[in-house]
Design a protein around this nucleic acid. Sequence first.
DNA 1: AGACAGACTTGGAATAATATTT
DNA 2: AAATATTATTCCAAGTCTGTCT
Length: 771
Amino acid sequence: MPEGPRASPGGEGEETEGGKKHGWAEKAAKRQKEKGQERKGEETKKKKREGGKVRHEKPPRFESLKEEPEVEKTEEGERRGGGKGVKEEEGGEPESGGDGGIKEEREGSGLGKSESVESDEKVKVENGLEDEKDTKTKAKGAKPAKRRKAKEENAREEKSKKASEKLEKEGPAQKRKTTEEGDKKKSKKTKTGENEKEKKKKEEEDKWKWWEEEKTEDKVKWKQLEHKGPYFAPLYEPLPDNVKFYYDGKSPMKLSLATEEIATFYAKMLDHEYTTKEIFQNNFFRDWKEEMTEKEQEIIQSLDKCDFKEIHKYFVDKNEARKALPKEEKQKLKEETDKIQEEYGYCILDGHREKIGNFKTEPPGLFRGRGNHPKMGMLKKRIMPEDVIINCSKDSQIPVPPEGHKWKEVRCDNTVTWLASWTENIQNSLKYIMLNPSSKLKGEKDWQKYEVARRLKGVVDKIRSQYRGDWKSREMKTRQRAVALYFIDKLALRAGNEKEEGETADTVGCCSLRVEHIKLYPELDGQEHMVEFDFLGKDSIRYYNKVPVEKPVFKNLKLFMQNKDPGDDLFDRLSTGSLNSYLQDLMPGLSAKVFRTYNASITLQEQLKALTNPEDNVAAKLLAYNRANRAVAVLCNHQRATPKTFEKSMQALQAKIDAKNQQLEEAQAELKRAKADHKAKKDVKSKEAVEKKKKLLEKIKEQLEKLNVQVTDKEENKQIALGTSKLNYLDPRISVAWCKKFGVPIEKIYNKTQREKFAWAIDMADEDFEF
DNA sequence: AGACAGACTTGGAATAATATTT
DNA sequence: AAATATTATTCCAAGTCTGTCT
C-alpha cells in the first residue's frame, strides 16, 4: 500500500543539554545559539539531506500550458553549458541581440570548433561560475548564524522591555478599570432587550455586502475595531492522585505541578508516531528537564525509564467518557462553547459585527513540526496575557485582561488587520488573531487576489515570450530567472524562499531547488529533454514529476548544474526577492505566487468547459466539476494521505453496486413479465403495471449510475486533496458561474462555511462570468 | 542591495459534528 | 440506539512577500 505523502524523518539524534533556569525567550535563544555553533560546518548540506526522502509517485501531471512553438532550431539555442556568451556580470561587450555571438556547441569535448574568442570567454564564465557559487554558499552559511544572534538579542531586549513596561503600564491599567465598569453596565443593558435586538442586528450584519461599497485603496484597514481580546486556554488541571507516574519501574513518583503538566503533554501523544522519533524524544526531554525541580532532575535521567502509561490511559479514558456522556450533558457543554464563541468570537469592525477566525490562544503542548523538523517535541509554552499585544481602536472598549493580569501592550494600529498577537517560543515568530474568511477584510483581499490573477491573464503571453527569449540571455542571472519562471508558470511551483538551515525541515521551492533535486534525461520514456523533479516542498510533501522541457531549458539546466555539488543551489544567482521585483516591473502586483493562482483558475475554467455536458444529470455534472477541481489539485501538488478507511469504504460501495445490479436485473425481468402480461390482457390495469415497472427500472438505473459515479470519483480522489485549491486558488466566480449556467445548486459545490467565505462571489457573478 | 521582521496566505492532519448503517 | 462512515471545522505549522532599515 502506498504510504502517505509525508516525509519520513530520519532518526538522527540531537545533542542534549541540561541547563539552569532561564526565562523562556532566553532559553530558546540560547538553544538556538548553541545549535548554531554545533551546526557550523558540522555537516554539509548533502550529508544532512540523505535520509529525508520519500516514496510514492504522483499521478501523471496535468499540462497547464498549451504547446508552444519550439524555439528556433538554430544552433544557438544549443550552446553548451558554460558556453561563451553567458556573462556573469553585466556590462560585457554589447553582443548582438538576444543570443548574438553565441555559436554552436558540441556535446562532450568542447574542443575543436570553438573560436578563440569564445574559448576565452568560456574560461571567464567558468571562473565566474565558481566564484558565484562560493559567494552564495558562504552567504548562506553565514546568514543563519547572524540571524540567530539577532533574534537572541531581540529576545533579550524584549525581556528588559517588558520589565520597564511593567512600570509604565500603571497608567493603562487605570484606564482598564474604568472600561471594566463600562462593560458591566453594558452587559446589563443588553440583557433586557437581548434577543430580538441582537437577532435583528445580527441578521442585518450577516448580510453586509461590503463588495457593493466603494473600495478604498488605502493602507488603513479599519476605522473602528472593538473586541474582547483572546480567549485563553484553560489552566492545567492536576492529575487525580490515583494516576501515577513511575520512574525506572520503582514506586510511583509524585511530580511537581509544572513537571507533571509537561509529562501529560507527552503522555497524551504516546500512541502517536511522533513519540518514537529520536529527535522528538530528545527535544522533549531537554525541555522537560529544564522545567523540573532540582530534585526531579536528579532522579529523572532518562526518558526511556519514564513510564507514562497510567497517565496516557487516564486521558484515553477521559476522552471516551466524554464521548459517552448523555446527550443533555453534551448539550450543556455545547452551550458553553457557544457562549464563549458568542462572547469572544466576534468583533465590531467599522460598525459591523464580524466573525473572528481564531479567537483562542494556542494551548501549551509539544511542538509538532512536519516532516523532518529539527524542533519537533520542543515545549510550546503557555501564552499569558503578559505575552499578548492587543490591537483595537482608541475609543473602543479596551478588552479586559484576565483578573490579576495585564496585557503586554495595547496599541491602535489601523494599518494592520490583526486583533491580537504574541510571539511563539519555538521559532520566535509572531502569531496573530485575525478575522474569519467571511469577513470583509479577508474577502476583499481574496477578491483582489483573483483580480490580480486576471490581470496576469492579459499579459501572460508577453511574459512567456519574454522569458523564452531570456533563455538565451548573455547574463547568467537572467537565464536562471527565465528558467525558474518557466517552472513556476508551467509546473505551478512555489517561489521557494530561503530558509534558515537547521531551524526548519529541509524543504524547497523553485528558487531554492538544489542540483540534487532534478535529474536530466536527454531521452526518457520515448520523450526528449526530460527533467525529473524529486524534492520535498511545503509541509514536506513530496513533489515528484517527470516533465519534458524545451530544448533551451534543458541546455540551461545542464549549464546551471555544471561544476556544482548535489547540495548546491540550482539557481545560485536567483532569489525570490529579485524574481519578484522583476515581476513587479512587468505588471504591478505581480509576484511568483500569482502564477499559481492564475494557472489554477484558468485550468478550472478550461476543464469545466471541456468536461461538462449540459445534458448530464446533476451527479454527472458534479463529477465533471470534481474532475476539473482535481486537475487543479494535481497541478498544485495537493496531496493527502490515503484515508485510513479507504479500502473498506470502497468495498462497501462496490457491494452496494453489486446489490443494485441485482435489483436492476430483477426489475428488468419484472418489466418483461409485465409487458407480456399486458400483451396478453390488453387491459388498463396491466398497462399501468407496465408503466410502474418502467418507472422503477428507470429509478434503479439512475441510482446505479450515481453509485458508479461515486466510485469513480472516490477512486480518483484517493490521494488528492481538493480543499486547498478550492479554498485558495480557484476564483469562486468561475464555480458560481458554472453552477448558474448548468443549473447546479451552489450547495452542491460549497458547504456553509465556503458559501460564507465566497458570499461576495456568489452575489456578484452571473452565469457568463469569465475569469 | 541585502537582511529582516512583520503580516498575511496557504496547507494537511486532527478533531468534532453529522449522516448512514447496523 | 449504537456503531461507523463521511463531512465540516478547527488547529496550527509553514509558506510568500513587502516595507524598512542598514
